[in-house]
Design a protein around this nucleic acid. Sequence first.
DNA 1: TTGTATGCGTTATCAT
DNA 2: ATGATAACGCATACAA
Lengths: 330, 330
Amino acid sequence: MITIKDVAKEAGVSVATISRVLNNKPGVSDETREKVLSVIKRLNYNPNLLGRNLRRMETKMVLVLLPAISNPFYARIVKGIEDVAQKNGYGVMLCNTDSDIERERMYLELLKNKLSDGVIFMAPEIDEEELNDIGEKYAVVQCCEYKEGANVSHVSIDNYKASYKAVKHLIGLGHKHIGLISCKNNFLSTKHREAGYKKALEDSGIEFNPCYIRHGDYSFKSGFRAAHGLLNDFKEITAIFAISDIMAIGAIKACYENGLKVPDDIAIVGFDNISFAPMYNPSLTTVSQPKYDIGCTAMELLIKQIKNKGGNKENIVLEHELIIRQSTVK
Amino acid sequence: MITIKDVAKEAGVSVATISRVLNNKPGVSDETREKVLSVIKRLNYNPNLLGRNLRRMETKMVLVLLPAISNPFYARIVKGIEDVAQKNGYGVMLCNTDSDIERERMYLELLKNKLSDGVIFMAPEIDEEELNDIGEKYAVVQCCEYKEGANVSHVSIDNYKASYKAVKHLIGLGHKHIGLISCKNNFLSTKHREAGYKKALEDSGIEFNPCYIRHGDYSFKSGFRAAHGLLNDFKEITAIFAISDIMAIGAIKACYENGLKVPDDIAIVGFDNISFAPMYNPSLTTVSQPKYDIGCTAMELLIKQIKNKGGNKENIVLEHELIIRQSTVK
DNA sequence: TTGTATGCGTTATCAT
DNA sequence: ATGATAACGCATACAA
């Protein structure tokens, strides 16, 4: 392996000079700099960052923990994170937690072991307390999903308002019996979206029927089953709001298999505006989150924290948008 | 920051002993070991892996370069990679190249800079020569997509046979005018899938019509446009084979918007069996790759190379499967 | 402008 | 069974 010493010897200067050239530091004559660069090129030298990282006690790498890369919702967010990271000289390590707390803890070791300068959680599995502990020692940002109790920055939309708007859209189309496909989990977003649904009904003088709520697990199948159950049990239902696009798509599929046409016989609204939403048949009305901006903002927050050694706790709420497509409008 | 020295001082032993305990090495009395462990716990000590990595000149991390994490095709492959990695004490860094050669090269720096012990390419952008150079110095495996010329291991399916089988399925259903939605790229898989299409026609005595081939770019929209064009120009077409599920889904959408029902008026076959294939409306007939196994195999190959310092060039072909769903069978 | 020398945290070799 | 110490590759404070 070629090291900085080899380059120094070959160029006839000291390692300090090589280091200066590598890091674009001043105090090197143009002549020397050029000679060094040519030797670096000739020897095909690549600095060993293990040495640099140890010395500087930083890695210029950040961790992004996501429940599943297969979830298309995260794609644009990650892009935002990556773009801001790159602009600031940071690399991004994407890590699948599978919503498994052990796997999440495993990856968090990378943080504790100094292999990463900070972490962005897409949906933390660990509880408020553990999150708080980590937040006190390391740079941490929560993105989209977050724990309320923890004193850790987050960036997200207002899920309550977004859900309210989606259900109001259905009510505006004349629907009075609106099913809800929610999830049985502890996500704050879930709680907020359910609350928004109820508030929209209430504000429109429609009585809330708890039986109209079914619970899935964000999967296509669970959306399918939930819709199937709703349609079987309550013939009067003419619209369904699902708190995720994938479950909404499962619901549409269930409608068709029950002989109901969307949107003619039943209207469906999703949440997230994943890339498949406009591709589906029919295309899906849904709530769009500013995913790219969310990612950018999260990374910016993280970098600020890294620079300020953990200060700067901030919570940022970005704007959502209701996108109306074929699944609700005849 | 707590270091190994602090632990040593607190436990009243030398750093060497701490290191032995940390690495589960023999030559430490049970008594001492226990004392050390208790001190480690009490001080909440986390070993700084920057030191270890420099010393051992390895990181126990591998790079996985994918064109886009948003492509659902990669999800199961990555899971296979991760599972095998974890079993062997390796961490996985997922990196989005966006099919951008510069971004790809940027991430390859992590390899050259010793921040990663090896790399798995899902679809290399760099050419044979550059790939070869990297393969000579570092542990490299190509997964699914690969460059033929490069002397670098790969694992994939037989795309020629798979494509042949898919088209034969359509012919078996009585279709004689079969459109092909391919891609304009340099992927070997594309070439092989086109060749399989032609060979299937030929073997069945159906004349190949070059005009029946349209080119997309793996996107939904490109599939939509390609199908739209085919249907407009050639009313006799009753079936379309797309070399990716996403384009196939675009094609189905185009059929519906042209007033054609799938599969009643036209049959569609995709390729990859992404998670959305069974969810679509209608569900999609497609070629399934053993994605999880492909991922596992790639990672196993990579670990072998890391251990053998670059030896062990191997090419492995795994079995595919045609999955028949609603989009072809009435 | 350039060089010398120290240390980052760890592991591993060689003593004891 | 345990300890002292050199080394890994690099950046940097200080000297020249």
